[in-house]
Design a protein around this nucleic acid. Sequence first.
DNA 1: CGTAGTAAATAAAGGAACTAAATTTAGTAC
DNA 2: GTACTAAATTTAGTTCCTTTATTTACTACG
Lengths: 408, 408
Amino acid sequence: MFQDDAGASTQLLRKINMGAVLRHALEAETFMATEAMAVTGLTRTTVLGLCDELVDRGWIEEVGDSREAGQYVKGRPARRYRLRNDVGHVVGVDAGQHTVTAVVSDLRGTILARATHALDSQDGAARRTTVRAAVDEALGLAAVHPAGVFLTVIGVPAPVDENGRSPRNNEFWDNMNPDFPTVLADRGETIVDNDANLAALAERARGTHGGSFAALLSGERFGAGLVIDGMLLRGPRGGAGEMRLLNVVEGVGSTEGLGLLGRQWAVDASRAGALPSGSILARIPAEQLSAEAVFNAAADGDITALGIVDRLGERLARIAHVLASLLDVDKVIVAGAVAAALEPVLSKATAVLEDHFEAPVPVLAASTLAADGVVLGALECGLSAVREQPLSFDPRRQARAGEREGRA
Amino acid sequence: MFQDDAGASTQLLRKINMGAVLRHALEAETFMATEAMAVTGLTRTTVLGLCDELVDRGWIEEVGDSREAGQYVKGRPARRYRLRNDVGHVVGVDAGQHTVTAVVSDLRGTILARATHALDSQDGAARRTTVRAAVDEALGLAAVHPAGVFLTVIGVPAPVDENGRSPRNNEFWDNMNPDFPTVLADRGETIVDNDANLAALAERARGTHGGSFAALLSGERFGAGLVIDGMLLRGPRGGAGEMRLLNVVEGVGSTEGLGLLGRQWAVDASRAGALPSGSILARIPAEQLSAEAVFNAAADGDITALGIVDRLGERLARIAHVLASLLDVDKVIVAGAVAAALEPVLSKATAVLEDHFEAPVPVLAASTLAADGVVLGALECGLSAVREQPLSFDPRRQARAGEREGRA
DNA sequence: CGTAGTAAATAAAGGAACTAAATTTAGTAC
DNA sequence: GTACTAAATTTAGTTCCTTTATTTACTACG
């Protein structure tokens, strides 16, 4: 970043250092000058000066009770500072195919409210109004003024380029990503990204997966968010992580996801009358069969379900192998709604990987974020944007908007 | 980079600005203060002060004749500065399986000398001494003192992690990457990287491919250097771009490269007596057949060669499709020694992509760097490291080493 | 209760790095 | 020789940080 910043005036220093202190404030529950000195390497005088300015600008506030929460007893009690709760907020949205979920959090990532709206139409205009409604409901529940939103991040089931646009030649994608920013004006900057990418960011934020992994969304169709060396891959058209290549992978042959196939194979068996009389699956009407039901039946030893799970495990193993061998990822994290019940499939796939593929073989894991992966990733995306350049946002916008309304 | 630099003292500013001026000096043939002012946004006073310091430190020198080369006539003639030719040098090495090539350049990227040594042994120790010999020969030809080398970058046919190490469980890789830094001590810092990765960097430096492409090395085995969104992918073990996945891709099934298969299929046809009497290939003894000969024969209309080229084109199309569909690359650049003769294969593959695969389809191109891709990429890798952090290198090391030797 | 000890806050002085504005210098054009 | 031009140089700030006292607000203990 330095090299971009040719021509650094002396005021830039102040900005760098203020950013450093502010970043510490975003992470710490509460902090004293001495801590900030250790983090930034600056003098007490300087740090206190920066804190003064941050208070002026509305980012942090001083909290009086200095020692009671303190880690020390002796000497003059230190002043303590804290990020203001009302500095700004971030909104994360999962604009899925059938459901829209919006979540509001403060800058520390504490979730204040969520709202879920069902979508009956696939039309782009309808999606726009539903997203707006969900966002506004969540903001209302959290009692956050729209002007208090720094960023709104929306996850959509379509490839999205760095400008938030999806390829224009596809009607489905057009409907999934119908220019959300215009309908969310005055709710902060809007970022649109692919749902699998955001799920990957959510996993990355959990910090337990290392720097290189794939987050595999696996409901109806496979889609992956690829994090390599800590970086999320996008591609010029946002197509990185699209799984079209599965069509030409031996033993896979299609992009159909675990959810779809698990359900479909069970339905096929049911309709064909191929379920043994004692089968757990036989008790469920064909039109109510779901992948989760199949996985749970397999966990209970159902023979048909186990057969399906084995086939899915083989399939998943091949997919994981493809990702790991081309991209060297350590781990493939299966996310999406099916993740919770996925254990039998993962065991089978892990066994297949170890028995039939050359080391190093990727670790398979189910996401622990359940169906929230995308919306949490959207939040995380917004939060990390704020953490990277906090000073590019203005904590006073909200206050000014409030004043204006008061006058009106 | 700012956020890493918590605690910026006032001297940091100087360093930022000095780096900016120096970076301009690295690019411009010669420059005046006014230019540097435009580039950096600094005042004349400051720029001249920085130039003074850069002269002191041995980076640049003042050139007297100010106006004769000048773009203007009026006013007081401007002082002119130029990067010193002897500031430092960069060495790039292609430590291939059978040949070692070393190249020496100055900091502007002008190549001063090259040396090529054949390798008869595949033993790691032998490779180390050969690499050292090639480097020293090139340095001798360029009349560059070893202490005048800022960086030596070595490309090897093995995956390499960010610390320059290859996975330990593979004897071949061990021999290909046998701890070069120890044998090149006192020839600057040593960087080891995968050959395909370096070839990709060479292509990136040419600047005509956009931010996302794959450089496909295609001699005996396929290997790729992947550049996505302008970043070179590595992976935790340096395994990104390994093409093991081709084993499970329909219509490909192995990692064998175009060079190997082109030769092998021709040899098979020759030995089986399947070559028509008029065939160009029939005039070449089986043991002298090469992929290049096959491609050239195809260009001349040889029916057997055309058959081979068609099969290879189908294969290449599938490989390009896999890379493009998973990573969204715009372009697949085929590099390596076969690249020059590759046109017939590329035409076929392009046709296959357009006819049988869904858009967007990647552009195929042969590298214009011929067999030099890896060694030029190694150079580029070193040069861009210098360009990024020029001030982390010391132009005076060489002079001091010279003095020491003079005294001794 | 008063004194010693401690760690933070504050104040004062100073240095490094940049800008701005006035002045000087080294040329060309006529 | 005079007018003009554009760069160099000089001089006088400004900003931001550090260093070095000095003061303040507490705890501990006799």
